[in-house]
Design a protein around this nucleic acid. Structure first.
Lengths: 292, 292
DNA sequence: ATCGTTATGCGCAATTTTGCACAACGACCA
DNA sequence: TGGTCGTTGTGCAAAATTGCGCATAACGAT
């Protein structure tokens, strides 16, 4: 019997593949396979259906996930409970965030935190999708809406506003934009519809049901760069647009959105010293920047 | 990080010594020491005060015990939850019991259980003291009183009776025993007072406050053998005395005790298949024998 | 239909972990 | 006070574990 096998099991259950689990655990996939097999032997039960597509949990395996997760909770709690008071912070903290926030709000805060805690390793994962904190894809998440499920703690960081932007040059070439109705005639830049992972990001229908962007991207940076290259009109975060003097707001009275960033952390991690330090730093920094 | 280190930690915390923990885990004490040291390093905290007298938990270690125990609960639960339905029972079950019950009531039941489940290993620990199921000194305990603490499940197995016995030969040589008062004049056999681990076993003061046995032992078997050797009068379990035709009851009306055996199992273990099988077998067998 | 990709499983060499012998230290007893 | 017992801690050889390369099988694209 080896309690560590439960850790390997959990990784495979979450990844669905030996190879990926091995990568996550920093061991060879063969090792992961052997440990899982050992656990199955010790419990006398099949935990996975194996196939070239990966490892699929059996019913028994599914039930074991809950159990292994309470073990994981204990392990994390132990670090918070007895973990090195007063000693230098170390370890990795992975932050999942929308790219806009990641680049314009979090990057600098992260830099400062790293400077203050040299042994702390920060990973900022800026992907255009939500993160599963339950599956431990990230330790901390910044999102545009509050979560509704799981053992998660969350709080509102701050509101932010978005407006329609274009370059001064573009607007000079299209002087006939005076109302929302006129927007249908011009080029719009926006998200690729099927990649809108949060309904809070779906601005276009809110401007007008018939409007459709002509240039779309999953990345707000691409949208920004396209806009800066006189590519058209685009709904952008004010905190991003403020950095670029060539951008001006279009119909700021008629088109204006207010959204909020939410801070989310798994209950288990909330008490960890290094998570707390990073959380506080990022929230404080984001609030300062979004207020100013 | 290695979850298995928590298992080593827990053993040391319970034993208080590397050597004993190693024995319990079937590994060398050096290994135990190394694993504990690794856990301390990974948590960045001192868990034990080390001395040539053993390992003493620090405050941090004390707090970690609770956490490690919930992990242990999870591991045990996992065996019950997904554990091999339908497959051959195996593993060890350790039963703590008073020696009298162990030899005269449990031994035979255990033999049958072993025959029915060849891979099952039964350990009957018959020691003149109570067992700490919480410290996992045994999986199942038979006791003469119900427990009052801990996460334990228990139920009354059956009542049993005790009487005062002596051999026919001894009584013929001492015909003048007609009342409780006469008992002070003759030789008594009983427990060594300071080894009476449960007040339910302290029969002598109940017969008469002034009575004192002349030959005492921590073992009921020694008491029985002494009685059989015409050593005197002794309070014996009826189920034991019944096996020996030379024994007769003395003052059966005046001196008669009724006690009960209790079955105790740790909550965590109660659901385990092999524990259930052994429990049922022993309880059923004990009830049959105590009724007949 | 075939090829390329990606997955698991197995045998062998390298590394890590473990067990053993011994030293050091304090407690207890005569 | 000196000897014995039981404990922890360390160096070194053996054993178990791990990583790597290759074989094999299934799926999707061309």
């Amino acid at each position: 019997m080896n309690w560590d096998d439960y850790r390997y099991f959990l990784a495979v259950a979450r990844c669905g593949r030996l190879t990926e689990a091995g990568k996550q655990l920093s061991v060879d996939h063969a090792t992961v396979g052997r440990r899982v097999k050992a656990l199955e032997a010790s419990l006398g039960a099949n935990l996975f259906d194996r196939s070239p597509q990966g490892y699929q949990l059996t019913d028994a395996g599914q039930r074991l996930v809950d159990i292994a997760e309470t073990m994981e909770t204990s392990v994390i709690e132990s670090a918070a409970e007895v973990g090195g008071k007063g000693q230098v912070l170390s370890g990795a903290v992975r932050i999942g965030a929308p790219e806009g926030a990641a680049a314009y709000l979090i990057a600098e805060a992260a830099t400062e935190i790293c400077r203050a805690h040299p042994l702390l390793e920060l990973q900022i994962v800026a992907l255009p999708r939500t993160f599963s904190l339950s599956k431990r894809e990230a330790d901390i998440a910044i999102a545009v809406s509050a979560p509704d499920s799981g053992r998660l703690k969350y709080r509102r960081i701050a509101d932010y506003t978005l407006h329609l932007y274009a370059t001064r040059a573009y607007l000079e070439r299209h002087p006939d934009i005076n109302s929302v109705a006129d927007l249908k005639k011009v080029r719009g830049i926006g998200y690729v519809p099927e990649f809108i992972y949060d309904k809070e990001l779906d601005y276009m229908p809110l401007i007008s049901p018939t409007i459709k962007p002509h240039l779309t991207s999953t990345s707000v940076h691409v949208q920004l760069e396209a806009t800066l290259a006189d590519g058209g009109l685009c709904v952008l975060h004010d905190f991003m647009a403020a950095q670029h003097p060539t951008l001006v707001r279009v119909l700021p009275e008629e088109v204006s959105f207010t959204r909020a960033f939410w801070f989310i952390v798994h209950e288990d991690y909330a008490r960890l010293e290094r998570i707390r330090v990073v959380s506080e730093g990022i929230i404080e920094s984001m609030r300062k920047r979004l207020a100013g």
